[in-house]
Design a binder for these strands. Structure first.
Lengths: 220, 220
DNA sequence: TATACCAACTCGGTATCCCAAAACGAAGGG
DNA sequence: CCCTTCGTTTTGGGATACCGAGTTGGTATA
């Protein structure tokens, strides 16, 4: 695997794991030495991460994208629009086999032991669900939104009850798809997204001070 | 302006104007000499264009993204979902002033003399309309979709009647927003998008042979 | 004539060098 | 003590040299 791709993945992982704090300044030469690669792949990785919204330009330099509550709200609105449309297409188009496969994966990930698994499982579920529509742009839009959200989404799945609830709602949603009930599936997915996002923003508001204390930049 | 940005714009323009044919192979060194820049900015521009979908990797090399009818259909579906949701938000949130500004721009661009202006005006209108929602992700999604579509959209606005009709429908849509009629606005925008896309795909099907003759790669 | 082999070339990936501009910091003046 | 100023350092942008993999075209041999 090329250094550029490797570096992109490692940087991405470091950002999503909050090893690189939101708002933190990045220098190409600093990353060069931290990841032991030369500037060329570092720069390529930064450009890619920029297009993913995980990193952004700050004047001449680079920063890890701050966590932006306005952005989280906007992403929720986008997800409602895209995912509800995608699920209607899925109900009309997806094969029983593909639906079963998602249910199987959901059951296999049943436990959702910790926060990280919860975040991963949730993200994967929504992307796969959108993928059922057969529309890659919708799936990509959802994947992109989940990526941008994943730095904060662990807040929402901290308790095992929250993870249980998310899992149950996911099951309900895919169940409605399996039953070919488009209206119900769309209503469920919208209310799931809205509820999740509202709780997320509430948690973020509550934890704001503590997170800022740890050097996490949060803007509105 | 930096060479990277300049090169990105020039390459993008060349691709959208079909100066670089869809499917054509690109080499970094070829672009380097064609645009009289060194490989560093060429590479950066290619990476950005890759994330915009105008260029893609082909094995180890690069090609101009082929025109993909399946992609066009999928983009239409995404636009229906995003733009109808955005317009509902716009009806609820946009100020009269901002709405007036769009109407003014629409009137200023009234003539839409030629195909290129028609494509530009249409794209701008839809992006600005989505921007009224205040949700930048929705506006970005629409912008990205319009970019990917713009290489073929001239097919749809070749006749002055088609440009007139598009202009009239745009006026009707923004009128419904101004009247704060969300349902009507959503219905109008969806039927506008669907009609436009269907005509576009029909034209593309009809012109397929001629375009292929000119070296344009069209896949399904 | 057909095929196997090899040399030259092309290409993207990487490392590194230079440059101008911006950021930083120390010293000096108010 | 604060603010300005000027020189040093750092930084991103760009150019280029080198590498190894892959392709091509030609040649020599069977």
């Amino acid at each position: 695997m090329s250094q550029t791709v490797q570096l992109h993945d490692r940087l991405r992982a470091a950002i999503l794991a909050l090893d690189l704090a939101p708002g933190q300044r990045l220098t190409e030469r600093g990353l060069e030495s931290r990841f032991e690669a030369s500037r060329t792949p570092v720069r390529a990785a930064l450009v890619r991460l920029d297009s993913e919204g995980l990193v952004r330009r700050d004047g001449r330099g680079w920063i890890v994208s701050p966590i932006d509550t306005g952005e989280i709200g906007a992403l929720g609105e986008l997800r409602e629009a895209v995912e509800s449309a995608a699920i209607r297409l899925s109900v009309a188009r997806a094969s029983d086999l593909d639906i079963m496969a998602i249910i199987a994966r959901l059951d296999a990930a049943r436990p959702a032991h910790d926060e990280e698994q919860g975040v991963r499982a949730g993200g994967d579920f929504h992307v796969e669900l959108a993928g059922l529509s057969g529309n890659t742009f919708m799936a990509d839009a959802v994947r992109s939104a989940m990526t941008r959200l994943s730095r904060t989404r662990w807040l929402e799945v901290r308790t095992s009850e929250a993870r249980e609830q998310a899992w149950a709602q996911h099951h309900e949603i895919i169940g409605a798809v399996a039953a070919r009930d488009a209206d119900r599936a769309a209503v469920l997915v919208v209310s799931h997204i809205r509820g999740t996002n509202e709780r997320l923003l509430a948690f973020l508001d509550a934890e704001q001070r503590r997170l800022r204390w740890h050097g996490v930049a949060i803007v509105s």
